[in-house]
């Protein structure tokens, strides 16, 4: 089975496995690495990991279905997460989400048909003093007030064009 991953990623995976007293512990790091490079976790990827770590494919799949950060379908090139939890809700995160749905033409919890962007409501991102909080891919944006939201929308659109 070949996942067509670059040599460097395969190397990183092997190094990861070596770090743990028991190789099964490397399953989350491997899933993260594959998702980073493929955008999602395919059935084939789960089988590949299972084989490499002496697990049953179902034991890998039950992790993929459990953890909110792991996806079985490609996510948009730009992944936007809006914090939903109390401190952000108190500062208007529901409105932030609505505005983003409109501006990006992408309902919450979905990926735009072109694959350009995904929009998600997410649980507390541990930055509650900067509510409302929005994450764009790996970058956290705090204090996303209505004025700052406009600037952020432009930034997201630029990123979509760049990656698209």
């Amino acid at each position: 089975m070949d996942l067509e991953l670059p040599e460097s990623v395969l190397h990183a995976m092997e190094a990861r496995i070596q770090r743990y007293p028991q190789k099964r512990s490397a399953v989350l790091p491997l899933l993260h690495l594959i998702q980073e490079h493929k955008g999602y976790i395919s059935q084939k990827a789960m089988q590949w990991i299972a084989q490499r770590l002496d697990m049953q494919p179902i034991e890998v799949q039950e992790l993929v279905t459990f953890y909110p950060m792991l996806h079985q379908k490609p996510c948009g090139h730009v992944h936007v997460r809006v914090c939903r939890t109390l401190s952000c809700a108190l500062q208007g995160s529901a409105q932030v989400l609505k505005t983003l749905e409109k501006a990006l033409n992408c309902p919450a919890g979905s990926t735009h048909p072109t694959g350009s962007v995904s929009l998600e409501f997410f649980e507390c991102l541990a930055n509650c003093h900067g509510a409302p909080v929005v994450m764009v891919n790996e970058v956290l944006h705090a204090d996303v007030t209505p004025e700052r939201l406009q600037a952020l929308v432009e930034e997201i659109k630029k990123e979509i064009k760049m990656k698209g």
């Binding site: 770090r19 743990y20 028991q22 099964r24 512990s25 490397a26 399953v27 989350l28 790091p29 899933l31 993260h32 770590l53 697990m55 034991e59 039950e62 992790l63 459990f66 953890y67 909110p68 950060m69 792991l70 997410f122 649980e123």
Partner: peptide, 27 residues
């Protein structure tokens, strides 16, 4: 030391859920 990243689940903060997760199982 090894840095181990979770994947978006609150229950991984509960210490025995965390341990299961670190063992490569559901938390």
């Amino acid at each position: 030391f090894v840095v181990h990243r979770g994947a978006g689940s609150y229950i991984c903060g509960e210490e025995t859920g965390l341990i299961e997760s670190l063992e490569g199982k559901r938390p």
